[in-house]
């Protein structure tokens, strides 16, 4: 099969998976709706039960599943390509930590309960602040290693301040709220959340999608990539800001969701001949599919309390990742 054909098949498969999971996500929950019922719900009277469930409760959730999952997958693939390291994930730059801190601060001061969008806005402010600090520390033309080290420092600091907020929090209710939010979830969000992050997420995707060729060239090392006419500085800036925009905005709404950005590029890499540039699109689709699937799974787990999305992705993701590494180890010495 030719390379282009193979690539189209991969896109078609993953896109169908996302579409199918999207429909399933709209139909799954305490009240199960068939795909036909889901479809009808969009044209029903807005006050009918099915319309409320599908359009107001489950649609924002499914749309956020796509936005958050695709952002994590795309940013993960981009960072792994830029850093030439399969262990990189979106959190490595401190963006996720910044978003979590920003959101936690809105909880701490009680803004989150006063104004529903305070939480995502605080999260986005935190994410941008983290990138700003990253730039101040590492400089615009910094080497990749400096960026990663600066990211570690930003992560440590945001984690410390988040812990401080928990430590000083006077109401146990706020403490619980902070802890639960940090576990990551896309349940009980509204379309306002979707529209709030959509422009930022789209801008981030665009910046990340521009780097395919450059990431391919980087497989041969930074000097060779430069000799092929690419500006390393421009690539770094695009990946950094692209990740900050889409993952920062996504985390601001969902809380931190681990493992998707790490595992999805890993899983799909052999499908695209290990080429970092060709991994971008499939990783975005794969991330969306994985997050939708995980978000459906949390609704199917029996019991009173719904499992948090971030808990499930880590719970299933970590052993799965270990198994994956072991099988790869066995195949390639």
């Amino acid at each position: 099969m030719s390379f282009l054909k193979r690539q189209s098949v991969i896109y078609a498969l993953l896109a169908s998976a996302v579409m199918l999971l999207f429909l399933l996500s709209l139909g799954t929950g305490a009240i199960v709706l068939s795909p036909i019922k889901v479809f009808q719900a969009f044209f029903m009277d807005a006050s009918s039960q099915a319309a409320v469930i599908v359009r107001e409760i489950r649609l924002p959730r499914a749309l956020l599943g796509i936005l958050v999952g695709a952002s994590l997958g795309l940013a993960g693939a981009s960072l792994q390509g830029l850093l030439k390291n399969p262990l990189a994930e979106p959190g490595v730059l401190g963006v996720t930590g910044g978003a979590v801190l920003g959101a936690v601060i809105t909880f701490y001061f009680g803004w989150a309960s006063a104004f529903s969008l305070a939480l995502p806005l605080g999260g986005m402010a935190g994410a941008f602040l983290a990138v700003g600090v990253l730039f101040l520390m590492a400089g615009g033309s910094a080497s990749v290693q400096t960026l990663v080290l600066a990211g570690v420092a930003v992560n440590t600091f945001t984690f410390a301040v988040t812990s401080l907020a928990l430590n000083l929090s006077r109401s146990p209710y706020a403490t619980l709220e902070i802890i639960f939010w940090q576990l990551g979830s896309i349940a009980d969000r509204s379309l306002d959340h979707v529209f709030l992050i959509l422009p930022l997420v789209a801008a981030g995707w665009l910046l990340l999608a521009m780097n395919g060729r450059a990431l391919n060239a980087l497989s041969l090392g930074e000097e060779t990539a430069q000799s092929l006419g690419l500006s390393l500085r421009a690539v770094r800036l695009r990946v950094l800001w692209g990740t900050a925009l889409c993952v920062g905005a996504a985390t601001a709404v969902s809380g931190s969701i681990g493992f998707v950005g790490l595992v999805v590029p890993h899983l799909l890499r052999p499908w695209v001949g290990h080429e970092p540039g060709r991994l971008l699109g499939p990783s975005a689709l794969g991330g969306a599919a994985m997050l939708l699937a995980a978000d459906i799974a949390v609704r199917l787990v029996p019991g009173g309390t719904e499992l948090k999305l971030g808990v499930l992705t880590a719970l299933v993701g970590a052993p799965f990742f270990l198994a994956l590494i072991l099988t790869l180890r066995r195949r390639i010495p």
């Binding site: 390379f3 030439k84 497989s219 041969l220 001949g273 970092p276």
Partner: peptide, 11 residues
């Protein structure tokens, strides 16, 4: 220096 196991042709 090759950081990913690409095929010869793609390289």
């Amino acid at each position: 220096q090759i950081h990913w196991p690409l095929t010869v042709e793609r390289t």
